[in-house]
Computed example of a mutant assay.
Amino acid sequence: MDKRQQLVVTAFDLFYRHGIHAVGINQILQVSGVAKKTLYHHFSSKEALVAAVVAYRDAAYLEWLNARLAEGEQTVTGLIHTLFMALDDWFNDRVEQLTTFHGCFFINTCGEYGEPGHEIHRLCARHKAAVVNMLADYLRRTGTAAPATSRLAQTLGLLKEGAIVQAHVQGEKRAAITAGELALRLAAD
């Protein structure tokens, strides 16, 4: 792993566990073992590092989710089942590549960058849109008609977000199972 990647991975781990504003540059440098000069060679500011961390998690999460959805049965019910079982695995720390569950990194980050016009906030919003677009793509593959595809993708995205928050904030580790059952009932209607 090169120094830039080492900084991004270390910063992600610290930001995800403790929060972005709670973690200082010196802590990232200490844990990563990288010199301050090297950090500023790669990133002009802490905010530039945060943007790189958001991009890193975005790529990792979308890659994981796409792989999981591709494994499932390519029907509407199969997609719903696969999505919420994947979330259940994540919430219950059975997904090594996503690390220990501390809620949604993008939701947590938006809590710290609350202004919708802020670049970090916009990067997080783009991630959320990419997830819904991915769900819509998988729904189209099932033969679901266009208006229903968009509506169902939005619904699944909303249920996914609610399950993440309930699992993190309330410690309800079965939230994905409950949301999946609700999604199946809604899709049947």
Rank of each mutant, 00 (worst) to 15 (best):
Y56I: 01
T155I: 14
R126D: 06
D93N: 11
N108F: 04
F101N: 06
F43V: 08
F106R: 03
D88E: 04
Q74N: 05
A163V: 06
A153C: 08
E161F: 13
T149S: 03
L135F: 15
A145N: 04
Y61N: 05
I120H: 02
F101G: 08
N133G: 15
V31C: 08
T99E: 12
C104W: 12
Y138R: 07
G143Y: 01
F84C: 00
R94L: 01
Y61T: 11
Y56R: 04
L39Q: 06
L65A: 03
T75D: 00
G111Y: 06
V131T: 13
H42G: 12
R122F: 05
T82Q: 01
Y56V: 02
K36L: 02
M134T: 15
Q27S: 10
F106G: 00
F106Y: 03
Y40M: 10
K128Y: 12
C124S: 05
A153Y: 12
K37M: 13
A86L: 02
G114K: 14
I28P: 00
Q74S: 10
T142I: 03
S45Q: 06
I107E: 02
T100C: 14
R140I: 09
T155S: 09
L39P: 08
Y56W: 07
K46Y: 14
Q74F: 07
E119L: 02
I25Y: 05
W64R: 07
P116I: 11
K160Q: 15
D137M: 14
L98K: 13
A59P: 09
R68G: 05
A67R: 15
A70D: 04
I25R: 08
R140Q: 08
A125G: 06
A35D: 10
Q74W: 07
I25D: 01
Y113G: 11
K160H: 13
H118L: 03
V132L: 13
L135M: 12
A125P: 04
G162T: 06
R151Y: 12
Q97N: 10
I80G: 02
K160E: 10
L158I: 13
H127W: 05
K37G: 14
